[in-house]
Structures are given as C-alpha cells and as structure tokens.
Nucleic acid binder design. Structure first.
Lengths: 335, 335
DNA sequence: CTGAAAGCGCTTACAG
DNA sequence: CTGAAAGCGCTTACAG
C-alpha cells in the first residue's frame, strides 16, 4: 500500500480511502490510485486492516462438525455457508470425528484466528472450557447436541420423541421383537434415541431385552456385522430400529446380503439420499439439516450483533417418512 | 500480550518467546508468564503474528468447490482437510454453484485473506485472471476441470475414455438406442463425457441421433422430467447414459415411476452412496474423490514449499462398477 | 538468557 | 477533501 501511495503520489491514507471506497476522494486521485494498484498488482491485506479496525471483526466464523463429508454435516455446512455469505462472512470448517481432544484443539486454533463466531457439533462431554471464550466475546452456538451445562444457544432435533414415534410405528405394524442398533451411548443424541426406543416399548407394555440392544456402532461395516450377528441368533428380531444413517445403511446391507430385506422391518433415524429408491424404500425419521444450519447461523449472527438474551435450546421436530421398510408387517399382524 | 508482560513483570519479547515455546527461557519466567496468561485469559492473535512473521504464511488454504453439500465436493473437501490438518493448515471453503462471477469474487476474497494456497473446481471458462495471483506467490491447483489455458497443476478424471467405456458396456449388452443425458455442455467435463459417448457409438458404427441427446441438465428434477419425456416418445431409448450423479438419480426416479427400472438399462458417471442397493443396483463409472482431493492437496503444498516444476495435468482413472442396471440386456441380445 | 527499538500493512483520530 | 502521526498485536534484528 505504501508503494501504491508513492507511485500514485498521494498519501497512504488516500490509498486506504480508495480501497475502502470512501466517496469523498477527488476522482482524479481515485483514478491515479487505481492505476498504481493495477500496475503493482496490489492486493489489500485483510488481516492487517482488521488488526487496527475498530470493530476487530475478521468476518470469519468457525464451523466444527462431525465430518464435512457426512451428508448431515455437509447439509448443515451449506446452510451455514449461505447465511454467512449473505453477510460477507467466510466459514472455516473442520471435522472432529467425535474426538473431544480435537474439539478443544480446533476451538483454540479458531480462537487464535479470531473468528467472530463459532458453530459446534460438540464431541466432548463438557463445554465449560468455552465460557472463557464467550466472555472474551466469541459468539458460540451448538448444533445437534446440547452443551453441558447449557452455556449457549443450541439447535437440536427432538431425538427422544421422534425415536419413540418411530418405534411405536414398528409396534403398530405388529412387531414384537424390535432390535435397537445405535451409536456410542456416550453421545447424548444416541442416548436420547435409545431412551425414545425404551419409552415406546414401555408404553406398549413390553420389556427391553438387552440381547436385542447394540450400542457403540459408528461405521457402516460395524453396523452391518452387528445386524448379521443378531439375525443369526435363535429368535431373531423381526424389526430393526437404527439410530443414525451410517448404521441404517449398514443394516440395509446386511438385510440385502441375507435376503431378508422384505421380511425384516427397518426404521432409521436420519434421512439419506435415495432412501426412497432402495428396495424396499427405507422408512426414516428425517431431520432437517438445512433448517438446523440456517437457524444456527441466524443465532450466531444475532449474538455477534449483540443479542444478550439468555441461552436457549431450539428444538426442530423430525418427521416420520414411511417408505416401505417400516411398514413390513410383524408376527402380531401376520398372525 | 502487553498486559501479560506487565503482569508477569517481563518484557514483551519474553512473553512472545513463551507463546512460541522457545526453549531458552528460564523456567521461573515461563511459569510467571503462564500464570499471567491464565489470569488474563490471554489468546494469541495469529493474524498479528503473521503480519510480522518472515514467511508471511497464514496456514490457511482456500477451497472452492461446486457445492460443499454435494457428495463429490464433500469427499474432496474431507481429503483436502485431512492433508492440510497434518500440516497445521486450515481450510476456508466456499460453494461456487457453477457461477463464474462468484468464482472471481471468492478468489479475490481469499487472496485478500492471504491464503497460502488455493484449490479450485473452476466454474468459469477462463482462468487467466489467476496468473497474477500465482505470480504474487499464491499456489493454485485445479480440480475436476483443466484450467484454460493450463496455467497450473490440475487433477482430473479420465472423463472421455471412461464414458466411452461405459457406453461400450451398454452396446455390448445389446443396446442400440442409447440416450445421453448430460449437464450443461459449457462444462468441460460434460463435453468430454459427451465426446466419450460419441466415441463409443462411432466405434460401433452407430450414428448419433440428436433426438436422443439432452444437454443442460443440472438438477435431479430436470433430469427426471427429461428422461420421462424421452421414454414417452415413439421408439424410446432402451438404455440411458447419464453424465453426473444428480442426473443419474433423476433418471432412476423417472424409471421407477414408470416401472421401467428393470427394462431400460442405465450407466451413470459418478458413483453415489447406496447405488449398490437400489433396485436394480446402478452401474456407474466411479471417480475417486478422496484420491483426487489428496493429490490436489499434495500438489498445492508442494507448490507452497517451492516446487517450481512445469504445471501438469494429473489424470485419475475412473472405474466401471457393474451393479445390474447397466447389464439389463438390449434388443440386439433379447433378439 | 533477556530486552528496547523498529516495523509488518493497515486504520484511527486528529489537524489542516 | 487530504495528510502526518500514532498504534493495532505481534515478530525481527540487534544489543547486552
């Protein structure tokens, strides 16, 4: 910028005014400055301008998700990006892979880069370490899981109620032996979904059979193997309830391989692309990741703008989409 | 940092040394500085340190893709993120939605933020505007499409050859009326895939019937409608070749709705999740987005490290995965 | 091993 | 409408 000023024969401050499009600069000076900028290939340095700027904003927010390549995370990401872009803000994202240590490290890294706000799908069990960051002025919004304790706004799905509805749907179809296949129960969402499963069984006067409950499934392959193992046992389940999309896909694979996809019913939490075109279509509890992402972005921008209302949890309802797999009748109906 | 120095009773420079973990600081001073940092909630400001730092690195790279929520882009993104994370670098990403104007704007924005490197799935037809940025020291690598002219390294798929192989596969199955359904032919990849389609037909001594060629399909819905329209005509195609995953999915939807999914063959470019579990499984030409992303990251980091070899195009071969839809026999075989 | 001065590229606050 | 000085938070280059 100094070089531009020298070449254009004006002061540093005038170049700054031209770059920031301050309207009160004489047109001939503007022209000279532009000519000098072009000749020198001048690129303004945003970091330098932020350093001195009064508001101190970097026009960057951080987004920490489970995995940017997972469809749920990716849809949230896109919604956040769109909202941010409308406000001239860029998104610095990172995948946490459910690693609490990584969550802390990435938060520290993003804070060092002075992001204006942070949207986090928390991987750790305790978010108190974030209070200091919030007090230092960083807006923080949580997605998919409530922070412990509730130290900031959160946008979550009605995991427990929706799961109960999904399992009730299987019970209504006549199923008595309904297995639960879920993610690590250290995840609050997985616990809530399992709680919903239990709620529905109890409401129907059934007991929870531990032999038909599998926790700790993360990847498609593990889910596939767990389902296959369940089906190989005496008295196999006639219906499956899966707690997230990778587990659901694993279950679909196992059912197909065993040729049981038209015999064993399946309801999964989380929608996924093409679920409608599988054979049979997969009945799911669909979340609304785009809506979740947009609301999270709205909230974080509101906080950045000074909103000081008490932190609140916003629940976005899921929707049961019947597509065939959840409507396969069970023994109580088949007789 | 000044406050920390004052509280700890040391110089600014000593605090700087502690923050940067310079080993030659007396242990008691280190302890004092740490105590002061904790008490004041000190957070180092990376932007400020970069401003003065000799290498001028921001440890940030920019990634411009078509859409972060599209599975191909998301998989590339994840691979880039992983490679970058190993080198302590974060990724600033943005979706371009195939908008050339947006490509330029985002490049300008990222340059103003002094990203160390840039990975771009170009949306525009001419990347010459990037030469100035490269000369100013920003490493640029192109993904999925060659830049015009070839001003930087690129990682692309063998679109033409793979498409020809896919269409040849349909011909071998006995199909004579093979339709092409593709993206805007202003996209180089779409043009190449169409060229591959033509290559295969000509190699088999067939003519290209313009009535069975549809360009300009971007979204699932448009593809669905285009396929439905083709199937409603007299002498409908007995096989479809689709140029990208959204078009393929639209074709699947149309075939299902018309109940022709076991009659009309389909080969699609781009794999997508669950393609194997559709009814029938969808035969595709699978790209390797994770491999593409990793290589792009490797190349951009190589350039950042000073690699000055001439720009080269790296071709990653696609793979034909037969899953059923592409093996439905055509009239020449059915007799 | 520690520190005082200068400066990274820009904006602020002020004066003219 | 334009500019000279000071300063954002840090590191460099140097001296002790």
């Amino acid at each position: 910028m100094r070089e531009v000023a020298a070449l254009a024969g004006v002061s540093l401050k005038t170049v700054s005014r031209v770059v920031n499009e301050v309207p009160t600069v004489a047109p001939d000076l503007v022209a000279k400055v532009h000519a000098a900028m072009d000749r020198l290939g001048f690129r303004p340095n945003l970091a330098a301008s932020n350093l001195r700027r009064a508001d101190g904003r970097t026009h960057t927010i951080g987004l920490l998700v489970e995995d940017v390549s997972n469809p749920f995370s990716a849809a949230v990401h896109r919604a956040v990006e769109d909202y941010a872009a409308q406000h001239g803000v860029l998104v610095l994202s990172s995948s946490l892979d459910e690693d609490p240590e990584r969550e802390r490290r990435m938060v520290r890294t993003l804070i060092a880069r002075r992001v204006d706000g942070l949207i986090i799908v928390p991987a750790s069990q305790d978010q108190r370490y974030l209070v200091a960051e919030q007090e230092a002025g960083t807006a923080v919004v949580f997605v998919d899981r409530l922070p412990v304790p509730l130290i900031g706004d959160a946008v979550v799905t009605d995991n427990r109620a929706a799961s109960a509805a999904g399992v009730a749907h299987l019970i209504a179809a006549g199923h008595t032996r309904i297995a639960y296949l879920g993610d690590t129960d250290s995840l609050m969402t997985a616990r809530d979904r399992f709680a919903g499963y239990c709620d529905a069984l109890r409401a129907a006067g059934r007991e929870i059979d531990p032999a038909r409950v599998v926790h700790g499934l993360r990847a498609t392959k593990a889910a596939d193997q767990a389902v296959a193992a369940l089906l190989d046992r005496p008295n196999p389940p006639t219906a499956l309830f899966t707690s997230q999309n990778l587990v659901t896909i694993g279950a679909v694979e196992a059912l197909h391989r065993k040729g049981l996809h038209h015999q064993v019913a399946l309801v999964g939490f989380d929608d996924f692309p093409l679920a409608a075109y599988l054979d049979p279509g997969v009945t799911v509890l669909a979340q609304h990741p785009a809506q979740v992402g947009r609301l999270a972005a709205q909230l974080v921008f509101g906080r950045m703008a000074g909103d000081a209302a008490p932190a609140a949890a916003h629940v976005i309802p899921s929707q049961l989409i019947p597509r065939g797999s959840g409507e396969i009748p069970g023994p109580a109906v088949r007789g």
